[in-house]
């Protein structure tokens, strides 16, 4: 593979000499691509000189890393305690029924990925959900279609 375009190799080169950097390298790859693919993992393992099994065990141990490409908009519904007490389970249900998918899945059109997260640390705004880094506080199930439409419109404009 061409080294210029090999994300795994470049990231590996950057972090190889630093100690304790496997997780940081994986963060960097996911930051660029949105997930860590099989080829990236192999390239990284080779360049950093760690067994592929080691890369794989780290990838699958930590919740943060994704192995397949998520949708264009990643919807994270907070299931921390404050959000739970304030009824975020109903918001999650609404997302599921609106999108027709379960948590951890993406819509067939590749637009949305739904996931649950543990506490994003905005408990004062509970219940909270985050879409591609944008936080929506004081959520109600009624807001769900509004937010989905907002993102659909945004994607239409891009295209």
């Amino acid at each position: 593979m061409d080294r210029e375009t090999c994300l795994g190799c470049q990231t590996g080169d950057k972090w190889r000499k630093k100690r304790g950097s496997l997780i940081m390298a994986l963060h960097e790859i996911q930051g660029v691509k949105g997930y860590v693919g099989w080829q990236d993992a192999m390239d990284l393992a080779k360049t950093m000189n760690v067994p592929l099994a080691r890369v794989y065990e780290v990838l699958t141990f930590y919740n943060f890393f994704k192995l397949v490409t998520p949708g264009k908009a990643v919807i994270s519904v907070c299931t921390g305690t404050a959000c739970f007490l304030k009824g975020n389970d109903k918001v999650l249900e609404k997302f599921k029924s609106e999108l027709g998918i379960k948590e951890g899945e993406s819509t067939p059109d590749g637009l949305f990925h739904l996931q649950v997260v543990r506490c994003v640390g905005c408990c004062g705004l509970a219940p909270v959900c985050v879409v591609n880094g944008k936080t929506y506080g004081r959520m109600t199930p009624e807001q769900v279609p509004v937010i989905l439409n907002e993102w659909r419109e945004a994607f239409k404009k891009e295209a």
Binding site: R19, I23, M24, H27, Y62, F64, F65
Partner: peptide, 21 residues
């Protein structure tokens, strides 16, 4: 060094393993 979404890493020996990569 960044965590990656594992509650158990708040435990000091787990945290040390995590820093080690």
């Amino acid at each position: 060094r960044l965590g990656a979404g594992a509650f158990v890493c708040g435990e000091e020996t787990a945290l040390i393993h995590s820093i080690e990569g």
